[in-house]
Design a protein around this nucleic acid. Structure first.
Lengths: 371, 371
DNA sequence: AATCGGTTTCAAACCGCTTTGGATGCCTCA
DNA sequence: TGAGGCATCCAAAGCGGTTTGAAACCGATT
């Protein structure tokens, strides 16, 4: 007997296939690498390499190993892999919970859905931590030092967001969903071209003859809101229309906030004839205010909104109700996740930036200005 | 020199505190248990026990260890703990993605926010996997066999939900958010008393004099929708009012679906004078249809809706707009997570059940029936 | 027949923590 | 004085993989 064979045979062989029921195979004990190697009369080294596609293993052996792995339903223990490789095989999403408003970003669920696809395709886990925004830094530091994730997606960036220098300094791979005006260092991000979208939307209204155009925006410490406003102002400026603060609203993106903002504007001596709105949910409120005042959407007042294509807030079923600048948050999630994984794996060199263009969808909520 | 001391001293001591900048301490290398033990001239065993609160360590020593751990900013490596203990210190949330409708449950984000609090307080991670509902079983099996989680929260149970027997058979600890009518075996769940809530809501309308009361419900393969309907029917039955299928709607819980359902009912020869609605989002659509038909909410038609207290869909700011049966999804998340952790830790014996009662909030959307 | 290079396989160290089964020292009591 | 008991602490064996460095094998070349 060569010194190579038999070594693993000498140990107990108590783990055998037990048939229970017609189509079920069960095992007397957990199947791990060592067990599998024993059954194949190979060393754990070789089995590991065979399964992980390393070149230094005979093709015939690899086949044999693969077959046995299937047969015995071998699933490598993730915990062991993580420890041995030092990789977490997981990425973290830190959901900031605004302590003031107690609001969970509604966009979040769909973004996650998109990112999740990418992760599961690549064998990564998605870790969520909900963190009150007053101690975000601690949360990120802990994530890093406990080594539970290989990278992080940063949600809802604010202006001069402190998380960006923080993560950079900690050398944690990260991708921002959105951008942070005022960041000193380059970083990776996926974002909608908010500025161009809102510029385009405003221009569209101007082209329809509107000159008194309101803006119902999100809170302006959020980066996207700043950009949207500046796109809106650019378009007005290019048409020589002055910005009127009385028809600019900025609030949480809820139905009621939209309603309130529109009510206020409609009560003005000269109400706007058209409105640009930052989210579908706000647009619902805006529409309600319009209709409650006996006006007709698209005829008396034009509304154009941004649409994140949230799955539970479709803009009509076949015909779009609102004219909208549309950009899928779920798609952004997919792309951000892809980007992060390629950064983690080291495939990507420097920071990657990806600007998604919003599509202009013509719906029934806009019409020409009539005196 | 006693055989005890000096052993760990003999190895290199290359990991020392390096001062960089005024308030920053940095370390030349990663601080792990062995390093820490070396610094303290103790064995890893003792350090581990000291930090984990085991009794067989001198109080003075424990203090010393704790102080050193703080000083050197020691954070135990989670990957190693997981492997050594066999626990994953993580729970999984599997989000079913209905392949037909591509809808992510909007309730989901807030539930997660609630559950997340509990997890982080207890040192658990929250793992999310988004799984198309056509291969849920595989997803759950993999979660189990790869050992990435210690337990699972089941979302959006359907009637006779196959996941319940599956998880039971796999012996994975789980808690269902909601219930599954038709389950053969007992299991743990947290649910709102949907039936009583909708019975109560319907009774409330009956007490106001309404007799023609419609129901705008969610899809009726979802368990909660079944229960809500039966509560509604119970109340009607008790008042000797026949159920009229023409004023029963069942659809996805979106604004447009609510609008459509209400439109249809208002077009009937004898439209309902009151409506019970299954979600705020649908209620927004219902309201729109009502107002678009020139009717006034609460005066011409009464609406009572269920309100999950989603953070981005508040029912008014101070005064509630809709009369509603209210029950916080976030609170349900907290409780479900608590329950799961106590099951995982073995503190809970059998299946636990927790029925949350919804609160009836009187808003401005209901009023007495007038001819 | 000895040497050599390439292919294939293996033993053992390692990842960083927990935990078992002793040791050691000290105090007490016979 | 020695046995017994208690409080502390330690060495080493795990958890289940990956990875390094070396050895075995084989055919080809000297």
């Amino acid at each position: 007997m060569s010194p190579r064979s038999g070594v693993y045979m000498s140990l107990t062989l108590r783990c055998d296939v037990v048939s229970v029921g017609p189509n079920l195979k069960r095992f007397g004990c957990k199947m791990n690498l060592k067990e599998l190697a024993r059954k194949l009369d190979l060393s754990p080294t070789t089995v590991s390499r065979a399964l992980n596609g390393y070149p230094e293993v005979n093709e015939a052996t690899r086949e044999r190993v693969a077959a046995a792995a299937r047969r015995y339903n071998y699933q490598p223990n993730t915990r062991a892999i993580r420890l041995a490789t030092g990789r977490a095989m997981a990425v973290g999403h830190v959901i900031p919970l605004t302590t003031r408003h107690e609001i969970v970003n509604p966009v979040f669920a769909d973004f996650i859905a998109g990112a999740g696809e990418t992760y599961s395709r690549n064998g990564y886990d998605m870790l969520l931590s909900v963190v009150p925004d007053d101690n975000e830094e601690r949360a990120y530091r802990e994530l890093k030092s406990r080594g539970t994730v290989d990278g992080v997606i940063v949600h809802a960036p604010r202006m001069d967001d402190p998380r960006i220098p923080l993560l950079t300094e900690m050398r944690v791979p990260f991708v921002v969903h959105g951008r942070a005006t005022g960041a000193a260092l380059p970083y990776s991000w996926v974002d909608v071209n908010n500025r161009r979208a809102f510029k385009r939307a405003t221009e569209f209204l101007i082209d329809l003859g509107h000159r008194r155009i309101g803006l119902v925006n999100g809170l302006e410490f959020m980066d996207f809101a700043i950009r949207r406003r500046s796109g809106y102002e650019d378009a007005l400026g290019a048409a020589d229309i002055a910005v009127d603060p009385s028809i600019l609203a900025s609030d949480e993106m809820t139905e009621t906030a939209g309603f309130r903002a529109m009510q206020t504007m409609l009560a003005l001596p000269v109400p706007p004839s058209a409105i640009v709105v930052s989210s579908m949910l706000m647009a619902l409120g805006v529409r309600r205010a319009i209709e409650q005042n006996g006006l007709k959407l698209g005829r008396d007042i034009s509304v154009i909104t941004h649409d994140d294509e949230l799955s539970y807030l479709r803009n009509g079923d076949d015909v779009p109700i609102f004219t909208a600048t549309r950009s899928s948050v779920r798609e952004a999630g997919r792309q951000a996740a892809d980007m992060l994984l390629s950064i983690i794996s080291g495939k990507a060199a420097g920071p990657i930036e990806r600007l998604l263009e919003a599509e202009l969808i013509i719906g029934q909520s806009t019409g020409p200005f009539k005196g």
